[in-house]
Design a protein around this nucleic acid. Structure first.
Lengths: 234, 234
DNA sequence: CGGCTCCTTGATCAAGGTCAAGACATGTGG
DNA sequence: CCACATGTCTTGACCTTGATCAAGGAGCCG
């Protein structure tokens, strides 16, 4: 389990919360946060937190991409979702005061801002607007998780892969050439879709053969989003 | 879509909130609730709410059992969880102000207490203790949903069935003869586990042959909970 | 009794998992 | 810069799991 922490903590980061839930903190809380926050930098494959451990606090993603996943008994991992700039992670376990039920691993080098459990819980207790927004956030995530359950239970591999490609497109956007702006291994994709790496490779080349996507190494280029949407059953 | 509503609404029900999240309401709110609540009785197979509709409010289960499920494109349904006495359902959609993402159907005749969206949202806004508890509740459900995703993605049919039997035991308890105190069709069980009815029947008779459970009609008798736990991989 | 619904079993089949081998790419140390 | 090692991708062959289809049985109720 690798863990890298940059020494230069608490340099001037996280000063802009405008696109995160922290924008709902009041002025006093924002000032407190400036003092209490602990920023750090993590490299690809670093593990920011690991399931089974006690949560020490929450993390706001300043920059970069992480995967949030759980590991099964046989070691296979299932990716639950991704976190990127502006996302708050780790609050579920802090709120419900349970051990962490998932791990967070860096996919693209990132900068995160740590807020200790105490400080965070006080923010929630003392600020009804913030707590309302946090309920909304957890309800939104709950809705997404429930949708995920349906997908896994009721959809075929092909349908799920099409849906994941759309999800990645929505989450990370496309560049000028219509490539999805994130680089994942085939194994990562398999671990989102919930299948074997080889199966993903076969399904991807099917989609390429049908001219719905194109493949350049690990990068995926979107050719026909509408047909993908149709396949995914949305 | 059947829907039965007893005429005798608002008879003396729901006076005891001691085992539900509504116990965190303050005295004023409890009084308001007495005026605002709308109680009703629903028979087996009634649909209390249906996915895709706008949510009008939340429901507290006074008595009985419901299944919370989603329907796939091909009509197959996936049960997400059950609700019983003391459970609050429908709040996710009310909070995030989206259409209902699941349906609720009666499995055992039940009495529910309806609280309109407006009244409920005011409860949340005005009472920080209540809102804190609601965050906890939704985080707890989020944790369970995430666990469900792993099960579906990483576990075999046999493992999942063992886990569901344990879940049913924990949720509904055992009677004096060790029968699980809920009656589900084989199809219902299949729709929790996420598989076909016939597959469930085969797996159930395997477990019976191994003397881990016994079957009397629809009723399931627990013979060896420890081995079931072992199989489920918990 | 006849008409439901639900359960059960057997036969067959397809989707996707697993294993093995090779290709390609990337990175590292000498 | 090369040689090597490592990680990832790809393909083919094969096999297992569980889905589907079909038919019959059991229980229940008007």
């Amino acid at each position: 389990m690798k863990f890298t922490k940059d020494d230069s903590q608490n340099y001037n980061c996280c000063t802009d919360f405008s696109d995160s839930i922290l924008r709902y903190l009041n002025e006093d809380q924002k000032m407190l946060l400036e003092v209490e926050k602990q920023c750090s930098v993590h490299k690809k494959n670093d593990i920011v937190y690991h399931e089974g451990n006690k949560p020490h606090g929450v993390y706001l993603i300043e920059q970069g991409v992480l995967k949030i996943y759980k590991t099964g008994n046989d070691g296979r991992e299932q990716i639950i979702r991704f976190a990127k700039k502006g996302d708050l992670i780790g609050f579920r376990s802090v709120i419900s005061n349970e051990v962490l039920c998932s791990s967070a691993k860096v996919i693209e080098n990132c900068r995160v801002c740590f807020i200790s459990a105490n400080v965070f819980l006080n923010f929630v207790k003392e600020n009804s607007e913030f707590s309302m927004q946090l309920i909304k956030l957890s309800c939104k995530e709950l809705g997404e998780s429930n949708k995920f359950i349906i997908d896994l239970a009721l959809k075929s591999l092909r349908e799920r892969l099409a849906e994941v490609i759309i999800l990645l497109t929505d989450t990370f956007g496309l560049d000028a050439e219509n490539f999805i702006q994130v680089v994942l291994t085939r194994e990562d994709i398999a671990n989102i879709v919930g299948t074997a790496t080889e199966s993903i490779i076969r399904q991807l080349s099917d989609l390429k053969r049908e001219h719905l996507i194109d493949l350049k190494g690990k990068r995926i280029k979107i050719l026909d989003l509408n047909k993908l949407r149709k396949i995914s059953g949305l």
